[in-house]
């Protein structure tokens, strides 16, 4: 069978490594650039990075551990 791009673990590793590399680069740029915003915290170092990360972790954990137990039913629940 034909091997595709992400069938090789090496390629997945490469993708992940360049992704992490880009994140570090972003943080470096963040430190160097003078930012402007309407709120004081927008100018704090890496505010958006921290917000994005925390927001998504909170989102997923709340959805998984709070919302899902409340609302999940079998697929034939309404039948």
């Amino acid at each position: 069978m034909k091997k595709h791009l992400f069938d090789r673990p090496r390629n997945v590793q490469r993708l992940l490594r360049s992704f992490y590399g880009f994140l570090i680069l972003l943080l470096l740029v963040d430190v160097l650039v003078v930012k402007h915003g309407y709120f004081p915290w927008e100018e704090a170092t890496a505010f958006y990075a921290v917000f994005g990360f925390v927001a998504c972790v909170v989102l997923v954990l709340l959805a998984k551990y709070v919302l899902r137990p409340l609302v999940m039913r079998r697929e034939d629940y309404y039948d």
Binding site: L16, F19, F22, L23, L26, L27, V29, D30, V33, K35, G37, E42, A46, F47, Y48, A49, V50, F51, G52, F53, V54, A55, C56, V57, V60, L61, A63, K64, R68
Partner: peptide
């Protein structure tokens, strides 16, 4: 551009880590 890129890429980091750690639902 910088703030939006940071927001999105670190959201992607959260997804990646949650998925790799098995915490993702």
């Amino acid at each position: 551009v910088l703030s939006q890129t940071e927001l999105l890429f670190f959201s992607a980091l959260a997804f990646t880590l949650l998925l790799l750690s098995g915490l993702y639902p």
